[in-house]
Design a binder for these strands. Structure first.
Ligand SMILES: [Mg+2]
Length: 223
DNA sequence: GCATGTTTATTAGAAA
DNA sequence: TTTCTAATAAACATGC
């Protein structure tokens, strides 16, 4: 199969959606938040496919960050100079890997229309988990969840040998909440946007977005 | 001008 | 088929 000289994995598009890729990047950072440029870098470092056509996919990536409420902006602190804000996962989407329990509250109000994934849709009814993977958690409004900020502990990254992915060599171990479980691919990345549109949980961190709007990610296995 | 964000529109595919 | 999802393009708004 060595079709010599031809594409190996450099050309193959990774089976991850932009949401997954972005969540992966964010989750891999110690602080659980990254500036846009770092998200780009993370993806480019690991997936050769994204070393090209940058204008195109980066526009799509930015579209996803804004469009999906599961990604929130965290203002920079004076001591963290740089451009743009930091991007983090909305609290309710924070950990859906790993933690497979938790109760889901019964909330939900069929309020109105929203996009496919509204938090209510997800928790309220078993929205529908494709593939059989259920995402895990929807915490009511957790007071504690790995908030983006600096103080978490572990950083971690994964070094996996995957087809279209590069591991730079740093394989830390133990990832707090990443995937670790079983079939989540190398990164546990089944994620899905959820949200937008809902208005239920308050936002926790110090997002730029005011209240309202709850995002979330659901699980979506690419392949 | 470029980087970062936000938003709307269109489209291909998969799912129901 | 219609519905849903993700990708893409593009207009536009800020801020540096
Ligand atoms: Mg957003």
């Amino acid at each position: 199969m060595p079709r010599p000289g031809r594409n190996t994995y450099s050309d193959q598009k990774p089976p991850y959606s932009y949401i997954s890729l972005t969540a992966m990047a964010i989750q891999s950072s110690p602080e659980k938040m990254l500036p846009l440029s770092e998200i780009y870098k993370f993806i480019m470092d690991r997936f050769p496919y994204y070393r090209e056509n940058t204008q195109r996919w980066q526009n799509s990536l930015r579209h996803n960050l804004s469009f999906n409420d599961c990604f929130i902006k965290i203002p920079r602190r004076p001591d963290q100079p740089g451009k743009g804000s930091f991007w983090a996962l909305h609290p309710s989407c924070g950990d859906m890997f790993e933690n497979m329990s938790t109760y889901n509250l019964g909330v939900s109000q069929p309020s109105s229309f929203k996009h496919p994934f509204a938090i209510e849709n997800i928790i309220a009814r078993e929205y529908k988990m494709p593939g059989g993977l259920a995402f895990s958690t929807m915490q009511p409004m957790p007071a504690a969840y790995p908030l983006p900020n600096q103080l978490t502990t572990v950083g971690s990254s994964i070094g996996t040998g995957w087809p279209h992915m590069y591991s730079s060599g740093m394989i830390d171990t133990a990832t707090p909440i990443s995937m670790a479980s079983s079939e989540y691919g190398a990164y546990g990345v089944p994620i899905k946007p959820l949200c937008h549109g809902g208005q239920t949980l308050p936002a926790i961190p110090v997002p730029i977005k005011p209240p309202s709007a709850v995002p979330s990610l659901a699980s979506r296995l690419p392949s």
